[in-house]
Design a protein around this nucleic acid. Structure first.
Lengths: 171, 171
DNA sequence: ATCATAGAGTTAGAAATCCAAACTATTTTC
DNA sequence: GAAAATAGTTTGGATTTCTAACTCTATGAT
């Protein structure tokens, strides 16, 4: 029987099997997404850039640090990415009047339309790939994604600073 | 063809919902894996490099093209990566005696031990992160990964490639 | 009030990654 | 035997992302 103390000896199979297959499959899916994004000749966005635009669509006026944390990047890396998107007129970057240290990031009108188009393309082709799944299989994938999201989401309200999820934004 | 006639009025087909959450969660998990790999100060391998070593562990003597296809990289990119691993004495690269155009890639003894250690570390910390899951939740994740693997995996080793990954080569 | 300190973000410099184009070497085909 | 095809490498460049050092702004201690 499985000991529920610290799971040191038993439960090795299920947990480690899960870790092994996640480590095997997630990079494959990610690579397919990158390739598909690169194929989209309309918007020329990376997966990260599209995710950044989508985040700003959901959270207009976010500071840079929130975006960096959401993406799992350092502040300089995200600053560079944002500079590129500002130069492409997809993001408006202005100084917060309340606290002038903060930056306020918002999608421009062009950013909104590019986001809409790119998201439609990317998720559309992904959905097309997933068309072979039955509704039940889709539900399984969705449920698994929600589980993984709970564990890997950056702004997890519970234990955001365990050693495994120490973010690179601060060291 | 599309079978979403019943869902046209409602929000979103199950497929599209699945695509959206996959596009949201997979990059997060991937980024966490990258950060965790970078924290491992013993081996200094990227996710891709570890995956390449693992592939060669399972398929000794593979040619470069098989490795490139498995990783979803172009031949030049994978050639460069392999050169780095050869320079670090983790991979032995020799010319196939049967067909001298092919290269035969094998793990060195050092490569095997580095692979073992790195895989243990990477999947161990991943398993630790997944410890919050119950056995049932783990099973859901495993099942979903198997589903995604069926759709996104390149062709299986020692087998003909059907149509899996012609994406990275040409557009 | 003033100066020290901390926080948010940017810039600079370097390293890694990856691709397309061009190239070499080998095998197959005609 | 020449031409075409195949496997891989080299080259050159674009992108990404890090650390370290910097600027600017807010807070706080005295």
């Amino acid at each position: 029987m499985t000991t529920n103390q610290t799971n040191e000896i038993s439960n090795e199979s299920t947990n480690e099997q899960c870790a092994r297959i996640v480590f095997e499959v997630v990079p494959q899916v990610m690579q397919s997404m990158r390739i598909e994004m690169r194929r989209q000749r309309g918007s020329d966005l990376s997966v990260l850039q599209l995710r950044a635009l989508a985040y700003l669509g959901r959270n207009p006026g976010s500071p840079l640090s929130a975006l960096a944390e959401h993406a799992g990047l350092t502040l300089p890396s995200m600053s560079s990415q944002v500079s590129g998107l500002v130069a492409r007129s997809l993001i408006d970057r202005s100084i917060s009047p309340e606290d002038r240290r903060f930056v306020t990031l918002t999608l421009t009108e062009q950013g909104k339309s590019v986001l809409d188009a790119a998201r439609h393309n990317a998720q559309g082709s992904l959905a097309k790939t997933l068309e072979v799944f039955s509704a039940e299989e889709c539900a399984t994938v969705i449920e698994a994604m929600k589980l993984l999201e709970r564990v890997f989401a950056p702004s997890s309200p519970e234990h955001s600073q365990t050693e495994a999820s120490k973010q690179p934004a601060k060291a």
